[in-house]
Amino acid sequence: MSDASINTTGAQTQIGDAGFGDYFALLKPRVMSLVVFTALVGLLAAPVGVHPVIGFAAILFIAVGGGASGALNMWWDADIDRIMKRTKGRPIPAGKITEGEAFAFGMTLSVMSVIMLALASNFVAAGLLAFTIFFYVVIYSMWLKRWTPQNIVIGGAAGAFPPMIGWAVATGGISVESVLMFTLIFMWTPPHFWALCLFMKSDYENAGVPMLTVTHGRRATRTHILVYTILLAPIAVGTAFTSIGGPIYLAVALLLNALFLKGAWDIWRRDEVQAEADKYRTEKKVFALSLFYLFGHFTAILAQSALAPFGIGGW
C-alpha cells in the first residue's frame, strides 16, 4: 500500500492504496449475508434466550469470522482467480490489494473474531467458528479444491456450520436440531453448486480446478445433482418433526422439495444438445430455485420460533 507503487499506466496490474470497499469485498459480502442469516436463525430457533446485545455481537463476530475465511480463500486462490471470468474482478486479481495484505487482513480478523466470540458467548461457539475457518481455508481451499472433484461436497461443510454456531451461542452446545440445520446446508450445497457449474462452462476447466463437470463429465454431474436432491429431501422434510419444525415449516419444506426434485429431474433428463439449444435455461432456473430453497427453509424455521410465544407454530 505504499505511494511508491502508484502506477498510472496499467489499471489491471496496478497496486495502489485500496479503498475501504476493496477490503470489504475481500470478506465476500454475499457469502457473508448467507452466514449472517443462517447463524441468526440458528440463534433465534434455540430454546434458550440470548440478550440482544450479546446476540448482535455474536452474529457480528460469526460474520467477521466467515468473512475472514473468505479473505484467506482469496489470498490462496489468487492465481486461479486471475484466470476465471467470474473472479477476475476480485480485489487481488484486480490489483487493488496485494496477496500479503489479504493474508494479514484475513488472519487478523480470524483470530480476533474467534477470541471475541469466546468472550461474547462461550467456548463451544468460538471453537466451532475456529473450526469453520480452518475447514474452509485449509481443508477446502488448500487441500480439496484442487485435488478432488468431490471438493464441493466436503468443502460445503464450511458453509453449513453458521446455524450450528448460532445455536451454540444460545445453548452452549450441539443438539439434533443444530446438526439437522447443518445437514440441510451440507446436502444442499452440491446440487446448488453443480447446477452453477453446468452453465459456467469453461471457467473451472481453464483454471484447472477438478470440478465434477470437468473430471466426470456433464452426464455424471446431472446424475449427481438428482441423487443429492433425492437424499436432501427427507432431511429437509424430517426437520419439520423436531422442536424447530412445525406445520408452517412442513408446508414450506414439502412445496420447496417438490419443486427442487422436479428441477433436478428436469436437469437429469436433458442432455448437452438440449441445454445448449436454450442456453442452459433449466440449469439456471434450478440454480435460482436452489437459492430460494435454502432461504425458504430457514425463513420457515424463523417463522416457527417467532410464532411459538403466541401459541402458533410448533406441534
Binding site: I6, G16, D17, G19
Partner: peptide, 18 residues
C-alpha cells in the same frame, strides 16, 4: 504525476481511514 491535494488517491485514502 503530481499528487495534488485533490488527487483521487487522497479521497480513497480518506474514505478508508474514515
Amino acid at each position: 504525476m503530481a499528487l495534488s491535494r485533490q488527487h483521487e488517491l487522497h479521497k480513497r485514502r480518506f474514505g478508508r481511514n474514515l
